[in-house]
């Protein structure tokens, strides 16, 4: 980054620089009795006094471009400095490629800063060139695979410039590294939804993929959520996909009691009840039983939630019962 940051010994304040002697610094005017006062360093005050001065005089020069670098190093969250810098880049016709390198360095130091990612996006828009973006965000995600800013920038670049081609491989690697990486699962959905489409074939492939991952780690909310999410696109709904329902029953039979498995079976029951398509596995009685198991044994922290859902299924049970009675009445009448 800037050559003045790391070695403050060599730092010469702007007010002592002969080449800046034509500028009168403008101190911050925080009123007579300010509150939440930050005890800034002398360096901070010096740089920002000069930044205010050039902003006021609207100076657009190379030296100001350097000044903004110093100002941003002291506070990369100052959106005004970034915006002024963009104005300078335009005005001075600066080579935007070097600016991309600079932003990359700032991102490496402040990967969770909103302003710097915004700056990056504007540059890429200006250049209409996204060739570096997958690598840049890939590097940031290597450091922190759940960095929200990096994912947001990546999705934007992919969507804007149609960079889907290798994204599923990228996602697959991340999921292989950490099957619980929810950001990666979300990105998987993003790619399928925007690029591959939810054809029957793709749906089936995704089901297989997800079941395999669930088999690997059963207690993983991310994979179960993805499974539920992709079934939005399966016409047969939650309860109609025999591959999934038998997979779940098999797990259950083999004593798996992951709360996510039980919750999923409850959702299958609910879907079956709503479609009036219940069977011996998926019905209100089963939903009640599973809610009770979750509340009392397998997911106690959410016992109130499972009891609340349980009440709903008990209502279904009684409706079922009264319907059965009505049917019986009819038979007797005949």
């Amino acid at each position: 980054m800037s050559d003045c940051g790391d070695s403050d010994v060599l730092w010469i304040p702007y007010k002592e620089r002969p080449e800046w002697s034509d500028v009168t610094p403008v101190p911050e005017d925080d009123g007579p009795n300010p509150v939440v006062v930050i005890a800034h360093s002398e360096k901070f005050e010096d740089v920002y006094d000069y930044f205010r001065a050039v902003l006021q005089s609207n100076e657009k020069s190379e030296r100001v471009l350097h000044l903004t670098k110093d100002a941003l190093e002291l506070n990369p969250a100052n959106y005004t400095v970034w915006q002024y810098r963009r104005d300078l880049l335009k005005h001075l016709n600066t080579d935007l490629r070097t600016e991309l390198d600079y932003v990359e360095a700032v991102i490496k130091n402040s990967p969770k800063n909103y302003q710097v990612w915004h700056h990056r996006r504007v540059l890429v828009e200006w250049l209409q060139d996204p060739t570096m973006e997958l690598e840049l965000t890939g590097d940031a995600l290597l450091q922190d695979p759940k960095n929200y800013h990096a994912w947001q920038h990546r999705q934007w670049a992919i969507k804007t410039f149609g960079l889907y081609e290798k994204e599923l491989d990228f996602v697959d690697n991340l999921i292989t590294d950490d099957v619980r990486n929810n950001s990666a699962w979300n990105q998987r959905y993003f790619v399928v939804n925007n690029n591959l489409g939810w054809s029957d074939l793709i749906c089936q492939q995704e089901v297989c993929y997800t079941l395999e991952k669930i088999n690997f780690v059963k207690n993983n909310e991310s994979a179960w959520n993805y499974l539920r999410g992709l079934l939005i696109h399966d016409k047969r709904g939650l309860s109609g996909n025999a591959v999934i329902t038998s997979f779940c029953e098999e797990l259950y039979k083999n004593k798996c009691r992951s709360p996510f498995l039980l919750a999923f079976i409850i959702d299958v029951c609910e879907d079956a009840i709503k479609k009036k398509d219940t069977n011996c596995f998926h019905n209100a009685d089963r939903a009640v039983e599973l809610c009770q198991a979750l509340a009392t044994r397998y997911d106690k922290i959410r016992s109130k939630y499972w009891n609340y859902l349980c009440e709903r299924y008990k209502k279904y049970q009684s409706e079922q019962l009264s319907n059965d009675n009505k049917t019986n009445d009819l038979i007797i009448d005949e």
């Binding site: 360093s41 969250a77 959106y79």
Partner: peptide, 10 residues
């Protein structure tokens, strides 16, 4: 506030 909070300046 201490100078370490300079990034909250704005």
């Amino acid at each position: 506030l201490p100078s370490s909070l300079s990034s909250h300046d704005t």
